[in-house]
């Protein structure tokens, strides 16, 4: 599935921490962070997911000149909206060390297992596993992520 270069930047960490409502200074205040055990700004535990920003082909980002499946004049910019679409079923991280501003990570994505299951709430479910290994500028493995996505046959029943 390819390799992505992910430069870790302080402003991106600040915006990500804001988005999850985390006001811990270790994510935005270099001076305060230098006095903590972390010794400087680090990234919050789910920040690795923001590698999507650096994937040139990421399918969930609109691209100039290409039709987008979200709404414009009509509910979907595509003639036929994708079926129920994909949902996130599981996410697992293993941390070997915290990510820090200045890290330039090389992220290798690999397709994992695929399996199916029948569900009362959403019909046939197809699960796809994806493993991402994040290595730093010296080649050291710093983060391992395993995600499981699920495609449903129909929208999940809310009953």
């Amino acid at each position: 599935m390819g390799t992505i270069t992910f430069p870790v930047e302080a402003s991106h960490i600040m915006m990500f921490a804001r988005a999850v409502g985390d006001t811990n200074p270790v994510y935005h205040d270099a001076q305060a962070a230098s006095k903590t055990e972390a010794g400087g700004i680090i990234a919050p535990p789910t920040f690795g997911q923001a590698v999507a920003q650096f994937d040139p082909d990421y399918h969930l980002r609109p691209k100039p000149g290409q039709a987008w499946f979200g709404s414009g004049k009509t509910p979907s910019g595509l003639d036929k909206a994708p079926s129920a679409g994909g949902l996130h079923a599981e996410q697992h991280f293993e941390y070997h060390r915290p990510l820090r501003p200045g890290d330039v990570l090389t992220v290798e994505m690999k397709q994992g297992r695929t399996w199916e299951k029948e569900s009362k709430r959403a019909g046939k479910l197809t699960f796809r596993e994806r493993i991402a290994e994040y290595r730093d500028q010296s080649g050291e493995l710093v983060l391992t992520a395993r995600g499981v996505g699920v495609t449903t046959e129909r929208p999940v029943d809310q009953g």
Binding site: H12, M15, F16, R18, A19, Q49, A50, A52, Q53, D55, Y58, L60, R61, P62, W68, F69, G70, S71, P75, S76, A81, G85
Partner: peptide, 14 residues
């Protein structure tokens, strides 16, 4: 922040 712009999260009409 995350880069995940799937409209099911932000686009009520879609």
């Amino acid at each position: 922040a995350s880069g995940d712009y799937n409209p099911i999260h932000t686009d009520e009409m879609y």
